[in-house]
């Protein structure tokens, strides 16, 4: 099993941390992982993206030009990455602010209203976890238990009271798909 994933959106949407938690969850299951952020001008305003690879085999290139799954959270990212999904691959997108929806017919497209759900739950900070839940419903490459372990590892201890909230957000995301 190898999943090559691009996660892209605006800076501040939690794109990089979603990728980190996914990679960390892979590590919890003894999988091979890599996490490669766009750290350039993107990080300084505009779009942010990160390539995450979770695999049973050693990861070769951390930089890719086509992906098994694209998780996109804004229009510029959708415009950029829709055509970079491998035929038969997966595109998951949050429809908030999307005017031009994806048009490809050779990939599996999931529209997820994560922004709306996070707002309703008053969990804006957990928006990325709602999206992650949606992704894991489509591709359960790691278990929820591993994601929770990863959160426990990556969140500073003073934020550990937020773990149940994050889990709630992930489960909500799974319901949305």
């Amino acid at each position: 099993m190898t999943q090559e994933i691009i996660i892209a959106g605006f800076g501040g949407q939690g794109v990089l941390s979603m990728g980190k938690i996914l990679a960390y969850a892979g590590l919890m299951e003894d999988k091979e992982v890599s996490w490669m952020p766009a750290y350039g001008p993107e990080q300084r305003g505009g779009t942010a993206n990160v390539t995450v690879i979770v695999s049973d085999e050693k990861v070769s290139s951390p930089v890719l030009s086509s992906y098994d799954t694209a998780i996109v959270l804004n229009q510029p990212s959708l415009d950029k990455f829709e055509h970079m999904v491998k035929p038969g691959g997966t595109l998951i997108y949050d429809d908030f602010g999307i005017l031009n929806h994806p048009t490809r017919t050779d990939i599996n497209i999931y529209r997820i209203q994560a922004m709306q759900a996070a707002t309703e739950m008053k969990l804006m900070k957990c928006f990325n976890m709602v999206v992650l839940g949606g992704y894991l419903k489509v591709h359960p490459i790691v278990s929820i238990e591993s994601v929770m372990k990863a959160l426990r590892k990556t969140l500073p201890e003073r934020h550990h009271h937020l773990l149940p909230t994050n889990e709630q957000a992930i489960l909500r995301g799974m319901d949305l798909v």
């Binding site: 091979e32 992982v33 750290y39 951390p62």
Partner: peptide, 10 residues
């Protein structure tokens, strides 16, 4: 290089 410096791995 910037790739190896910025990427996360095991």
């Amino acid at each position: 290089d910037g790739v190896i410096g910025q990427m996360m791995e095991k």
